[in-house]
Simulated scan of single mutants.
Amino acid sequence: MSLLMAFSIVLVVLTIGDIVSTKSKAFIPSVFVSALLFLFGFWTFFPQDIVDLAGFQKPIIYLSMYLLITHMGTMLTIRELASQWKTITVALIGIVGVCALTLTVGKAIFGWETAVIATPPLTGGIVAAIIMSEAAAEIGMDKLAVLAIVTYVMQGFVGYPLTALMLKKEGTRLLNGFRNGELKPTEKAESNEETAPKKKLIPAIPKNYSTTYMILAKLGITAWAAVGFANLIKPAVDISPFVMCLFFGVIAQELGFVEQKPLNLSGSFGFLITGLMAFIFAGLAKATPAMLAQIAVPLGGIIVIGVSGMALLSMLIGKRLGYTKEMSFAIALTALYGFPPNYILTEEASKALTESEEEKKFLMDEMLPKMLVGGFTTVTIVSVIIAGIFTNLL
């Protein structure tokens, strides 16, 4: 398969996902449709490496991740991050709910090893899945090593539609309040419109010199510094370079070195997010029919049990902290997919429900920071910590 043929097929699949999502007003999220199509394709005529053949190989994907996460950091002010302690609490309690039920109910039904190996991938990203897969393989549990990877690959099928439903319900509630005048835009949105722009330590570059190259160079330097700092402090504190990119994006924007939403300003956001989404779906190539048949029952059981525990505890703690049960569950569900689906699902729900840019901005300002912080808390930070702990439980 040629480069352009593979690229075209991958983009057609992603496009069909967008069309179905638009037609259903985000009731059926694009990421869910695309995942189904990729799975069907891998089972029929797609080459297993179609995403690589399309040009979306690991170097460009890792570059995309570093730049996109730093870009997302520029959208969050330090004040916003400090204000998101409730979101972090809800996300963490959601993870506690997953572990509590899988290690009790899951253990009773499927056994200790199955529960221990499947839980960390369910709480987050591919790193946790790889850690548990290798741990299982080292002790001769090859089937459970596969279970760890497939749990990561398949959990999105539960997370995508549930999150879309929760965000649409929460968005409808917020929008009704906004239209009735009961809810107002956040203070950040009001201050940006009503007051002069905040002075930065580093003055803005004149508009004539703020070219695509300049914007991307500053973003790249920021991400480079973030990864270098994460490696520098690693002997003392092991913090993911991706988490550090988020923090450095916040700091660089606060100082004035990087603009807000630099990838949008440079016109690069769409292409980078496309490559990253394609790379995520490439993981479905591992989920063969024979493999899924072997582990279908424990796979489905652990996911249902874990998500049930997540829903129960996140909604309970969210209610105490003043969040609706829909928003609380949506925050916790970010553990099943992380970034960028958490961004895409939020944008789709906001776009489907609103009739103007003002309304869409209101919903994005209300929901997106919570979804981003929830995703980074669970997927990037907590899941790896849990995997490190759980390897010692085998």
Rank of each mutant, 00 (worst) to 15 (best):
T44F: 11
T44R: 07
F46V: 03
F46P: 02
Q48M: 06
Q48H: 09
A54E: 10
G55V: 05
G55S: 11
G55H: 12
P59R: 14
P59Q: 09
P59C: 12
I60D: 10
I61E: 11
Y62K: 14
L67G: 04
L67S: 08
T70C: 15
H71P: 01
L76H: 02
L76C: 01
I78H: 11
R79D: 15
R79M: 07
E80N: 10
L81E: 09
A82L: 15
S83N: 14
W85V: 12
T87K: 01
T87F: 04
I88G: 08
T89E: 01
V90I: 15
A91T: 04
L92G: 11
G94F: 03
G94M: 00
V96H: 00
G97Q: 10
C99M: 14
C99H: 02
L101K: 05
L101F: 15
T104A: 04
K107G: 00
I109R: 10
F110Y: 14
G111L: 10
G111T: 10
G111Y: 09
W112D: 10
A115W: 08
V116M: 12
I117A: 03
T119L: 14
T119K: 01
P120A: 09
P121G: 04
P121N: 09
G124L: 07
G125P: 04
I126G: 06
V127L: 11
A128E: 06
A128W: 09
A128I: 10
I130Q: 05
I131M: 13
S133G: 09
E134S: 12
A135F: 06
A136C: 08
A136H: 00
A136N: 02
A137P: 00
